[in-house]
Design a protein around this nucleic acid. Structure first.
Lengths: 244, 244
DNA sequence: GAAATAGTGTCTTTTAGACAATATATG
DNA sequence: CATATATTGTCTAAAAGACACTATTTC
């Protein structure tokens, strides 16, 4: 408990968004070119300060999603990611940032015309590898966001959030392959997904054509928790797993 | 990005702790009887405001752990849990609370003598069921903390954080049983844990006696991620899983 | 028909889960 | 020896993973 007559310090609260999507079969993150100091001209996550002292945090996240990314927050998967509040992370003073993770289906490039001019889908690899440097501690936030998404693909139906309302099983497989950075056997994937009842459900007799046999169409099912889980390859039976 | 010449609203930042442990084979959470308004006399999570505008968030969590729970933060598992910032959750104004989850091995009751007078280990069930009402939105935070712990037992070595530095496989099984609220087959559990190399490692030829055959002693191994994961029973092949 | 993608069948290996049997202590 | 707990062995069912094969489209 805290002492009487003492006033707690005030801090500035910001909201940052890690918005992931799949474009050209690779994982992208939405970045914005900063127009003001600090880090003017650098790439950064969309986000900003709380508008007023009454604004709810998730409301602020949704507002930024619409203002900075020109996306409809109602249709996107949006969840809490973490808090980044190390002193000194922002030269303007004590800024604590609450990060949210959003997953979007493949959308057109959000270039000119919208509020999101200067926004660009950048390959997540380039951020993770450090090839593309970000403002503040945003690279770390992206790392956490991507790892969060990777983990959730295993046990939840999050993968469907990367897909259009109606999709094929191959579309879904591309999500797993891109986010995990692996390649999966289409035949085993097909059956695994179908056997997990409630994960995806048939969406009419419609089909989709490109060159081969038309694929059945599906939409996200009611099941949110996958059991048994989808299995991420590459850790067959190693002695020491990655650190937590 | 934010406009020029506009000052973001300031909020008060608090840190709250969900400290879980195992006592008498049941899951307990550390609660404190509030000595000041608001909610004077009610049970609440240990926690408090940031000390000053320079204090790091995790440092604040560690400080509260020592001040309010009289525990050594260096030896405990401590991780971010979530942010609770709904307007109106605290009658004193806009308070945003960053919650941390701590896991402690079974410790003596933290009663008189320490700074933590008024602190008590309460059964987690009683909080989750609503039998014991908590101040603010702390019941919700406990719910999230317990669910987080339950999930992490599956895929990480978190269970060892509930144990003393040296423990038996049966001790570890009690952790799973208490946190998950299930009962497990000791023989299958035994082999499952042993097969997951790096999860636990032998700790000398010492033994421990009570009435039956003495058990081998183990300590936490280097492996933090469990693969294959421990499996939480009760969702055998149901059509619809629990919501996320 | 050739090429491409979708979907099915089948076999092997691994793992989960049930449970008998054995081992080593105490009283 | 009775009792209690620890540890090992064995069997069965389910699921993962490899991969041959069939189906349906476009060119």
């Amino acid at each position: 408990m805290t002492e009487d007559r003492w006033t707690p310090p005030a801090v500035m609260l910001a909201v940052d968004l890690v918005i992931l999507t799949l474009r050209e079969s690779s994982l992208k993150v939405l970045l914005i070119e900063r127009g003001v100091e600090p880090y003017e001209g650098a790439w950064a996550l969309p986000g900003g300060f709380l508008r007023d002292a009454e604004e709810d945090l998730t409301a602020a996240a949704r507002r930024e999603l619409e203002e900075e990314a020109a996306m409809d927050a109602a249709t996107l998967h949006l969840e809490h990611l973490g808090v980044y509040g190390a002193p000194g992370r922002d030269p303007r003073g004590r800024v604590v940032s609450v990060a949210y993770l959003a997953i979007a289906p493949g959308l057109p490039e959000p270039t000119a015309g919208t509020d999101a001019a200067g926004a660009r889908w950048q390959p997540a690899d380039q951020v993770l590898s450090g090839e593309l440097e970000l403002a503040f501690d945003h690279r770390r936030i992206v790392e956490d966001g991507v790892e969060n998404a990777r983990a959730k693909l295993e046990h939840s139906a999050l993968a469907t959030a990367f897909c259009a309302p109606v999709f094929t099983i191959t579309d879904l497989q591309r999500v797993y392959e891109a986010v995990w950075g692996v390649s999966l056997d289409p035949r085993n994937f097909y059956r695994k997904v179908q056997r997990t009842s409630g994960f995806i459900v048939a969406a009419g007799p419609e089909r989709k054509v490109t060159s081969g046999r038309p694929a059945r169409l599906f939409k996200a099912g009611p099941r949110k928790v996958l059991y048994p889980p989808m299995i991420r390859p590459s850790e067959p039976s190693n002695t020491k797993g990655p650190e937590e």
